[in-house]
Design a protein around this nucleic acid. Structure first.
Lengths: 361, 361
DNA sequence: GTGAAAGCGCTAACAT
DNA sequence: ATGTTAGCGCTTTCAC
């Protein structure tokens, strides 16, 4: 492309600047007409690569030059084209995050803290929702990989074989979250759903005050693992008749009411119930109130997730807490480390969980 | 780049295929090593542009050729590079969506329906959260525009001057939502917050059974407009002492409890209260219950948003409904129409609202 | 229906 | 500290 010679007079470049319009070079081209890095370079009377450096490695450019360039950027209203930048540098500065559902604020919080960390490092997030389906996850991953993200956050450890193949072929850092496995694709940060099911069963059993036990649970992969562990642990204590009500994911307030209603209508009297989300438990509280059942005297409730509201329901909800914000932050840090080729000390990170003992049990 | 001649023998191409590896051409280059469209073209023994057509306009390619190409794609596991495609075609197939907060499921639902429509049309969504701040919105818009989205969804009609400038310079379709203005940047789809404030005041006043009126409201721009209209309308009825409790956005269950507690502690006896979100109202229900106040006899509550749970609280929440899904869908349709240069019949779309009369009033 | 050439806007690599 | 050259992987335009 024709560029004015380097030693163009200062006056000339100033005149161009005050003209305040973008030259088209008079060439027939496919340009969008938008301000490009070349336009800025001409106006600042430097080469394009220097503008590129000013943007990406300002410390490598002389202060004077930097000032000229910044003035030109302001004057033109230049907005970099990251499609072009990403193509040339093979770094898109884009990170994909795949979650089951935005409606579930538990995932929303994970993504929020994840995004926040990565934004600070100059990355943007491409978000996808699977609706708890592995097939949907596969098609999302495939779509998202075509943007050449520098890394990807997954929820869960179960993926279709083709999805795994895509991920491996993409050859980018992958962080799986929300579960644990000894054989992650790359790094996994989460907690054991089996341990949670067992721990809640133990917690309720050892209180020694409930005659009956029940569970209202979604049917997604992880919730079912918790359910199985819960039932088996209780069976180990000699309790063979755990009442079960299953509902489709994602869980809602309404499904919580329905789930409890179903249990009660099928003869569940007084007892303790484990819900697969705080939302379900909250819905059940409304149902209990509507039926004039007292919590925790008639019905003891345990939720999952320790949502911000859980401490403020009336009575306050006993629930299982895991560090949502921590998962997001650690996932971001792990991804960043892998992108920068730093060593990742731990491929499998168990962030654990605690049972928060409040007033519904 | 060196390519084998077109009339390469079939056997030869088959041999390459079964070898199942990607040639590097022996050149020193900056390639990522990933499978490219050129690799697919070579394997299918066609030119790159034909592969491009097969992908983007399959109807323009002969069935036989298409089959060959698809086989090559499958065999290589080719994933298109949309950075390159977007750069070349000046269509990124990316749409930016800017919302105040993901935590607020009202916005989450808007984005969900918006994304769904656009995904069907082959677009992906770049999501950004402003945290209800215009400055944050500006920096987000600026960041997002560097991805060269084909369109952008905004929440609200208030933007900083620089933000407006950026948007205008970007020269892409813009849909503002969640509010109305006679002078949208491009298209606006929403409802009148002033009308809502007025309508709720009228609704409550005309029930003719409340002695006192209050409002618990977030302090974001739109909530304050509703609050003002609510107070002014009541003033028009001769009610001058509306009790007010303001809380920061985004609203939470806890802030709802707190807001109601504050009103009551400052002497609000029996009466009707308008909350700036269902979440706040739900929190207030817990506070009322904790204080043994009866709803709606002691306290009448109106929420906003008609969240899925609103119909299932106990008692069921009276609230203001607007068609969230509709906003998302219409915004998507408007954007698509503008992208395809179709006429947009209406630049200002009022989707209206209704007061859903349930049991808390 | 298919192909050759050119270039989208940027940056890596190698100068100086 | 700054510049030159040559692409990144794709699609447009114009041929045939």
């Amino acid at each position: 492309m024709q560029r004015s010679t380097k030693k163009k007079s200062k006056q000339n470049s100033d005149r161009e600047a005050s003209a305040g319009h973008i030259e088209n070079n008079g060439q027939a081209n496919r340009s969008t007409g938008a301000v490009t890095l070349d336009d800025v370079a001409k106006l600042a009377d430097v080469s394009p690569i220097t503008v590129s450096r000013a943007l990406n490695y300002p410390e490598k450019v002389a202060a004077k030059t930097l000032a000229k360039i910044n003035a030109a950027i302001t004057r033109t209203g230049y907005v970099p084209n990251l499609l072009a930048g990403g193509l040339a540098s093979r770094r898109s500065r884009l990170i994909a995050a795949i979650i089951p559902s935005m409606a579930n604020s538990i995932f929303a919080e994970k993504v929020r803290s994840f995004s926040e960390q990565l934004r600070k490092a100059g990355y943007q997030i491409l978000l996808g929702e699977t609706g708890f389906s592995e097939e949907q996850e596969e098609s999302l991953v495939s779509a998202v990989l075509s943007r050449k993200p520098d890394g990807i956050l997954l929820t869960g450890i179960n993926h279709t074989p083709s999805c795994r193949r895509l991920l491996v072929a993409a050859n980018i850092p992958v962080v799986e979250t929300w579960d644990l496995t000894p054989t992650p694709l790359d790094v996994v940060i989460g907690f054991s759903h089996q341990d949670i099911g067992r721990a809640v069963a133990e917690y309720l059993y050892k209180r020694n005050r409930y005659r009956r036990f029940g569970i209202v649970s979604a049917t997604d992969h992880r919730a079912l693992i918790r359910q199985k562990a819960y039932i088996e642990t209780l069976a180990g204590y000699g309790i063979g008749d755990v009442a079960v009500s299953n509902v489709p994911a994602p869980t809602t307030f309404r499904l919580g009411r329905q789930g409890l209603a179903q249990l009660i209508d099928h003869g569940f009297g007084k007892g303790a119930i484990f819900f697969s989300s705080d939302t379900l438990a909250q819905g059940a509280m409304a149902e209990a109130q509507a039926r004039n059942l007292s919590i925790p005297d008639d019905l003891a409730l345990v939720g999952l997730g320790d949502q911000p509201y859980a401490a403020y329901t009336h009575p306050a909800l006993t629930t299982v807490r895991f560090d949502l914000t921590g998962i997001g932050e650690q996932a971001a840090r792990a991804l960043l480390a892998r992108i920068n080729n730093e060593a990742v000390s731990n491929k499998v990170v168990d962030i654990g969980f605690t049972i928060v003992d409040r007033e519904t049990t």
